[in-house]
């Protein structure tokens, strides 16, 4: 079902001052695979996301893309390598429009000299942003509305649409169903399945365990910055998953690959 190994971190650690957010975490992601990353609040999931997306540099550990070691100096480098990320919050600029957010960092410029000076092709961006979001299966308000005028769910839809439409290899979704109603959350799960079918590697973070059990191939459980379990989804049921997250079920023997 899953293809070859595309993205991998080995023994990454990250401290925020005296807070140990990640402590030797390892994770593997294959093409066409959905990995669920779960753990209690503060377990280190978002920190791992930021290491994977280039937003933070790990204090220790290795990052490998297609088997080659990489050091992301900035999110730009990871984006250029085909890795898209939806951050848990604050991934959008509220004062910019929908289309400006979709194209931020990858603007379309006007033809000729104006383009060389950085003048934007706003109409083209608005049209293409709309098409992109629709292709992903996301209906959002007019491209010209600013993000601050949208509801929490609409913003989330834009953020998901942006990540999915740009991703070439890996897509990391940190709690994408936040702010979403039951039906919209179900639709996000469909979007994830579609990304998987296209051969992308997907990392899906959620506190809604039924969603994780439904859509993932493998589940990685983080607790206090350490990976305490990494196993195929078929080995879990909701009780066992919940127990592993809270620590009431010991994960002995399940550590590692």
């Amino acid at each position: 079902m899953s293809g070859e190994l595309i993205y991998e971190v080995e023994n990454v650690s990250k401290n925020y001052g005296s807070v140990v957010a990640l402590d030797g975490a390892s994770l593997k992601l294959h093409a066409g695979e959905v990995v669920g990353l779960v753990g209690d609040n503060g377990a280190g999931k978002s920190t791992l996301v930021k290491v994977l997306s280039g937003a933070h540099q790990p204090d220790a550990g290795r990052i490998l893309l297609d088997g080659k070691e990489r050091h992301w100096g900035s999110p730009r480098e990871a984006l250029d390598a085909g890795i898209e990320t939806l951050y848990q919050d604050s991934g959008l600029a509220p004062h910019l429009t929908v289309s400006e957010n979709v194209f931020l960092g990858r603007e379309l410029v006007a033809p000729g000299l104006l383009g060389k000076l950085g003048f934007l092709a706003k109409k083209n961006m608005a049209r293409e942003a709309h098409e992109d979001l629709e292709r992903v299966g996301i209906a959002v308000p007019a491209s010209s509305r600013s993000i601050s005028q949208l509801s929490g769910g609409q913003r989330q839809a834009v953020a998901i649409g942006r990540a999915v439409s740009w991703a070439r290899k890996v897509i990391i979704l940190d709690e994408p169903t936040n702010h979403l109603g039951a039906r919209q959350a179900g639709e996000v799960l469909e979007v994830i399945k579609a990304a998987k079918a296209k051969g992308l590697g997907v990392i899906f973070i959620s506190h809604t365990l039924p969603h994780v059990l439904e859509v993932t191939d493998r589940i990685v459980v983080l607790r206090l910055g350490r990976i305490v379990m990494d196993a195929p989804t078929s080995e879990f049921n909701s009780d066992r998953l919940l127990g592993t997250i809270t620590g009431s079920i010991s994960a002995a023997g399940a550590e590692g690959e």
């Binding site: 997306s53 937003a55 999110p75 730009r76 984006l79 990320t85 991934g91 957010n101 931020l104 990858r106």
Partner: peptide, 8 residues
């Protein structure tokens, strides 16, 4: 943060 995450 969003700006930097978008590659700016």
């Amino acid at each position: 943060f969003a700006a930097s995450a978008a590659g700016i």
